[in-house]
Simulated scan of single mutants.
Amino acid sequence: MPLVLNSGVHFGIKVAPRWPSTRVIVDEAAFASLQLVHLRLPRNLRLILTRGHEPRSSYLSIHRTLSRYAGRKLFRLLFSNRHNEVDEIFGANGHDLDGTHVDISIELDGRRLSFLPVSVFTPLRWQARRVKKYRLLLEDVRGALSICGFQIHQNPTESLQVHCDFVRLNPNTMDWA
């Protein structure tokens, strides 16, 4: 069953829809698992849910389709050596299917961290600097997401958007201590 969440904090998870969205639609089980992830993280970290399900027939989907088309062209022009990433970065990545495919941001001590300051057009060396600076934090978040049933996208740029897919919650791997 999908949940429709407006901006704000819902059960410890901050919801901040990515423009032009005004809400995030997320699978109920995926959201419950995000709450478990939040509980596993240090108190100074907060998850920010930015994107979930975007129905194919909506205005938002049409906007995203046009943006992805323009983005593909610009990305190919700017990064001629990264053509193999275009489909992964500019595909719908499951957001058009259901609410189990989500994008997450991270807030540290009340400040949202920006791993991709110029969105997916952030050069790889800039990304590498940010990953190096926040390596331990990213490992904590990714580890908690994995334990709680999420798979992080394999593409380095998508993984810094913390695009992840809710696969399942395995209660045998949960550490409640």
Score class of each variant (00 low, 15 high):
140 D>E: 15
146 S>W: 10
141 V>N: 00
130 R>M: 05
93 N>T: 09
71 G>R: 13
128 A>K: 15
95 H>F: 04
177 A>D: 11
159 S>G: 06
165 D>L: 03
176 W>R: 13
6 N>E: 09
161 Q>L: 10
44 N>K: 14
146 S>R: 13
7 S>Q: 13
47 L>M: 08
84 N>T: 12
34 L>Y: 03
102 V>P: 00
96 D>T: 12
46 R>N: 06
41 L>G: 08
67 S>F: 14
18 R>T: 12
115 F>D: 02
40 R>E: 07
40 R>K: 11
123 P>Q: 05
158 E>C: 15
141 V>C: 02
95 H>K: 12
139 E>H: 11
67 S>V: 09
152 I>L: 15
100 T>D: 00
163 H>M: 11
110 G>C: 03
31 F>E: 01
141 V>Q: 01
165 D>E: 08
48 I>W: 00
134 Y>G: 03
67 S>T: 10
80 S>Y: 05
86 V>Y: 02
142 R>P: 00
137 L>C: 05
111 R>Y: 06
23 R>M: 07
100 T>R: 10
36 L>I: 04
64 R>H: 08
72 R>N: 11
2 P>V: 03
159 S>H: 09
19 W>K: 14
55 P>T: 12
136 L>D: 14
102 V>D: 00
136 L>E: 15
63 H>D: 06
153 H>A: 10
81 N>S: 14
64 R>I: 02
133 K>W: 00
151 Q>G: 04
101 H>K: 05
14 K>P: 05
119 S>L: 13
61 S>R: 04
160 L>D: 00
85 E>V: 00
66 L>H: 05
123 P>K: 06
143 G>M: 07
90 F>S: 08
167 V>N: 05
122 T>N: 07
172 N>I: 11
132 K>R: 14
96 D>R: 06
131 V>E: 02
40 R>H: 11
162 V>H: 06
121 F>W: 04
14 K>A: 12
163 H>W: 13
87 D>Y: 05
17 P>H: 09
22 T>Y: 12
75 F>G: 00
46 R>M: 05
53 H>P: 07
81 N>M: 06
88 E>C: 11
114 S>H: 13
48 I>M: 08
144 A>S: 13
17 P>E: 02
124 L>N: 06
78 L>V: 04
101 H>A: 02
175 D>H: 13
145 L>M: 06
148 C>Y: 02
159 S>I: 09
59 Y>W: 14
81 N>A: 06
101 H>G: 01
4 V>Y: 07
43 R>P: 10
156 P>M: 11
56 R>Q: 12
96 D>K: 05
12 G>P: 08
116 L>N: 09
56 R>Y: 06
100 T>L: 03
75 F>W: 00
142 R>M: 01
9 V>L: 07
71 G>A: 08
167 V>M: 09
114 S>L: 13
27 D>C: 03
69 Y>H: 10
171 P>E: 12
143 G>H: 01
42 P>N: 05
36 L>K: 05
115 F>Q: 03
137 L>R: 00
131 V>P: 04
27 D>T: 04
135 R>D: 12
76 R>W: 00
121 F>A: 10
99 G>Q: 01
127 Q>Y: 01
147 I>N: 04
54 E>N: 15
174 M>I: 15
134 Y>K: 07
74 L>S: 07
21 S>Q: 14
39 L>R: 12
6 N>C: 00
142 R>A: 10
52 G>M: 04
149 G>W: 03
5 L>C: 03
122 T>F: 09
51 R>C: 02
